[in-house]
Write a protein that binds this DNA or RNA. Structure first.
Lengths: 343, 343
DNA sequence: ATCATTATTTAACGCGCGTAAAGTTTTTTG
DNA sequence: CAAAAAACTTTACGCGCGTTAAATAATGAT
């Protein structure tokens, strides 16, 4: 490995004994040059450690190999997990993923999208804030950049949506809970920012109705992304005031459930399906920590891998189709029920 | 807002009635042009929505306004939280943070650093994998890019290190536990990848020794980033085999403790400092979920804000100093003890 | 060995912006 | 109000690479 510094492709091409256009071709697609040529370049590459200037490469390209991944709040382990999975897929597919978190902030989400436009990405995976999103800004963004929405569906935004079949989530948990004990009440935030929460409530109401059971929706107050604390405080209030209509609680999502379980523990209420248990608690999402709550949480799991795969495949088709689909594609992936100790 | 599309700065300058160099100057520093000129540009900016091409801007710059943030594993909420805090600081300071996770993988960490070099960032915050890092790759990287290490200290790497004063963490927890009950044993992974773990063990041994108490270190097997599961399995084994020498357990970090508490719950062992409690458990990090464990976790907290501030300030000085410090700076920030229910 | 095919070289232009020098206009200052 | 200072315009070059067209060389098949 010589430590001679190479300034540009011209110089590197000279050192490999080739012309710049050939080397340029190699970097664009190594298979596009003759095997012997490829070998010479790769040999030189080992000796001199040259990398083409990304900025110069991209400035004339209408699209790059960049892929944006935007999530509403990365410190939420659910989004960290899904982002991680998608990111890996992008790398395997030869793209350069760039990860952004809106940190729950509308202005920041808009700024991220504006900055992302300037990066001319080949495509973007966007999990929008939801209710808090600036719809105008997102619409503008989607006009400029091929976008696959995930997690939160915003009507007619982006070329495709990949998300969860919320009905399937709730159906499985409700069915299980009803089969094994009292029908559940539904525990959620009063003003959820995420549209999935609304779909889950509606599914709950519909399923209970279809089963001829009376639904009970319990709404707790709270704003922001501290769901566990909202769930904990809400649970304390609801339990203390005796507003819990049954011994079975279905939380809208695992983070609320984590808070709910925490409150139960603090009140000395035993949760689970065995004897001596005061409550059963179940939920949705299979949050990475739901295995470690006390008791461990019965939940409807996202198929993280399947979601990530579908996202990637959708973006591939989208890029091949030139960034536009004739009709907006919607994919809803069903849940997988995970039985643990809490219900 | 006209929807006429502007191709380049030349065109935009013409529409604002100015010359391109002036407009260029404006984008480099809005305060560097006369107020009336600035107003004209900003007015045009509202009408035409022009943004200079990032790639063209950066290709001649030796450094950009980009700042890299590299963490070993972003799906670990501790890193998500610290990354989130640093990211915000970068944005406030007018930089463009770019966040990367090595996903616990040496090869990926190296690739991220190589890619980052090509981005010519003004500086990089790097929390390395630790023992698993490719030291050669990191050293090469630090030669090219002004780097502030954080979280994990690698000897002599980077221009500065900002991290936790592990001694202070352990001192506070041990002192508290000794004062209020039996001296703790120390619960950790056998082969921790993160150097902080080693420093915490050493601090534990030293502090116990100084207090004339006999130390007990319990090592559990496990590889990878699933610390909770490692802690849970380890706790089951240790408790089942009666290897626990005291009723007080100090875990190396909160994620292990979360697993430990989960095992205790599964075994019907009550944890806490009250009567009827079989064990006390404390830990370090103030993981975002340590508030919601059952019982809530007594822990030594990182000063997330202080760490992020110090990181930013260090990088500022580093950039001003031209990317090199005369001597490597090390900052260790002490812990803040948080008393909760588990000990 | 010959011709057709495919790969590479040479030469040249363009991308969008940074930047420097020299000249002109505007603003500030005494 | 004149002179000095500051801001702006004009002109021009460079950055590193993409890309194209025409010329040349290497390869492969007959």
């Amino acid at each position: 490995m010589s430590d001679q510094k190479i300034r540009n492709m011209e110089e590197f091409a000279a050192l490999s004994g080739l012309s710049r256009p050939t080397v340029s071709k190699y970097f664009h697609d190594p298979a596009s040059v003759r095997a012997t040529t490829r070998a010479r370049i790769e040999e030189a590459l080992e000796r001199y450690e040259f990398r083409p200037n990304i900025y110069a490469m991209n400035q004339n390209r209408s699209l790059t190999k960049n892929v944006g991944i935007v999530v509403p709040y990365l410190a939420d382990p659910f989004f960290a997990e899904i982002a991680r999975t998608i990111e890996r897929r992008c790398i395997e597919a030869g793209f350069s993923p760039i990860l952004y978190s809106a940190h729950g902030d509308q202005k920041l989400e808009t700024e991220i999208l504006e900055g992302l436009t300037a990066l001319k990405p080949a495509g973007v995976f966007l999990a929008p804030l939801g209710r808090l999103s600036d719809r105008g800004a997102i619409e503008r963004f989607c006009r400029d950049v091929p976008t696959v929405l995930f997690d939160s569906n915003l009507e007619d935004m982006g070329e495709a949506f990949v998300g969860s079949d919320n009905y399937s989530f709730v159906q499985q948990t409700v069915e299980y809970l009803c089969r094994t004990g009292a029908p559940p009440c539904f525990f959620e935030m009063r003003n959820p920012a995420n549209p999935n929460a609304n779909k889950r409530r509606k599914a709950y109401l519909q399923i209970m109705d279809a089963a001829g059971l009376e639904p009970h929706v319990i709404k707790v107050d709270g704003e922001g992304w501290g769901f566990e604390e909202i769930g904990r405080r809400g649970a304390h209030e609801v339990i203390a005031s005796g507003r819990l209509p049954t011994d079975t609680v279905l939380c809208s999502n695992d983070r609320l459930a984590i808070g709910f379980l925490s409150a139960c523990y603090e009140r000395g209420l035993r949760v689970g399906r065995g004897e001596g248990c005061a409550l059963r608690v179940a939920s949705h999402d299979d949050h990475p920590f739901s295995r470690f709550t006390c008791p461990s949480l019965t939940t409807a799991a996202h198929e993280y891998e399947a979601v990530a795969d579908k996202c990637m495949n959708t973006l591939f088709s989208l890029i091949e189709a030139g960034g536009r689909f004739a009709a907006r594609e919607e994919t809803l992936i069903p849940a997988r029920l995970i039985l643990r100790a809490s219900a």
